[in-house]
Amino acid sequence: MLTVEGLNSHYGRAHILHGIGFTASAGSVLVLLGRNGAGKSTTLKSIIGLVRPSSGHIAFDGHEIARAEPHRIARLGLGYVPEERRIFTDLTVWENLEVGRQPPRPGLSPWTPERLYALFPNLGALRTRPGGRMSGGEQQMLTIARTLMGNPRMVLLDEPSEGLAPVIVEQIEAAILALKAEGVGIVLAEQNLHFARRVADTAVVIESGRAVWSGGMAKLQANPAVHARYLAV
């Protein structure tokens, strides 16, 4: 469903991504693993169009989206949940969700605020609360829910477990597994290997902007050399 090929990206004059490539499919979870600064976030930002790749191809659902604008990419059904959450703090929970609303997509049962309150019960109790007056964990749930309002076929999640208490991380984990069960594809950028192990089907290890290893999650677990060399846990 999402194919990335030979992706190169720069920040200013710094060359961040060197020919990254991978394929992610519907109804499964792919995790990008790697150290801080390895290029995981830049990969996701390049896919959604926030960073303009200098070369390479990105195909989503049959459309070439490398160098397309973020709103066009989002309308094709690719959702993006940023690491910093970027909640609209002045808007209420409900209004945040409404900003994310896009027309229903054929073949998917459309998300509504009610369905999302069921997925994230914490949000249901806070619907009129301004986004700025929520805890970090609640904001993380809201940013995921807001992206789901666009009825994406695939979601890019950037470090959803960062800075959250372990109990909250377990709730995020449950939500990711629920989405996967609905057939939504997920690309996750993570440093937290414990978390990645629980949700991911396949993994791509990124080091210094290059994809250095890819394969099934079980295969990664059985490969101590990769752990020691790139993940260093």
Partner: peptide
């Protein structure tokens, strides 16, 4: 109005609004 909500959201973070499918 939806337009107004989008304006208020963009007032805070226009890049995020674009990532949600809104043509800035």
């Amino acid at each position: 109005t939806r337009w107004g909500r989008l304006v208020r959201a963009a007032t805070q973070d226009r890049e995020m609004v674009a990532c949600l499918g809104v043509d800035q």
